[in-house]
Design a protein around this nucleic acid. Sequence first.
DNA 1: ACCAATACATAGCACGCCTACGCGTTCGAT
DNA 2: ATCGAACGCGTAGGCGTGCTATGTATTGGT
Lengths: 108, 108
Amino acid sequence: MRGDAVRGHLDALLLAVLEAGPLHGYAIITAVQERSGGALELRTGTVYPALNRLERVGLLSGSWQSAGGRRRRCYALTDAGRRTLAGERTAWREFTSAIGAVLEPGPA
Amino acid sequence: MRGDAVRGHLDALLLAVLEAGPLHGYAIITAVQERSGGALELRTGTVYPALNRLERVGLLSGSWQSAGGRRRRCYALTDAGRRTLAGERTAWREFTSAIGAVLEPGPA
DNA sequence: ACCAATACATAGCACGCCTACGCGTTCGAT
DNA sequence: ATCGAACGCGTAGGCGTGCTATGTATTGGT
């Protein structure tokens, strides 16, 4: 998967992996990687600023925790985040449907 | 569809609509729009530079024509373009599959 | 002792499309 | 006869967004 691929869909990915329950940043990265079958390797420089932003706009709520001396910022979906995720899913389907229709038109 | 949506997939769209036969720029724009059911409205400032670039790198071959006093630059897929299109289609499937797997994980 | 993995974060950049123009022609409506 | 919309190509500049590179710190394995 080429580097820039995730562009425009990052928020959706982050919100989606948090749907099942709160996670901290590092775990989010590995969750995305696993769920995509290894195809999506998000960088920390991509993810952490995005998480901060999503918290700032109220789609996530974050809280510091510590596990074995390591501090972690744990993020959970807010109600607004859950609604936004639903919207992102709809947008994703419309997006793939639109591009797909051009790329692989049905056998005319 | 929000403006930036096409990012990263523009070349694929252009190559795809040219698969059925040569078209000029303006017709390419309307073809993309029609095949996407109106969802994708490419701007001239997006398309024309892209066509020039694709010609420059040998994926398209262009030729000036005139129809009723209007000059048009007509573009056709080259063999390299056809191969690239095939690659873009594969990449598209991998892309949607990867993002889709994260966004809508199978009912676990 | 050392290195990998865990964990968060910032700064600067570059890509790639968009916005906003500009130019010229043809055709339909008024 | 005039005007606007559609046709048709093109450039310049801006800007959002993720990437690259880098920094810090702790834990655990060898």
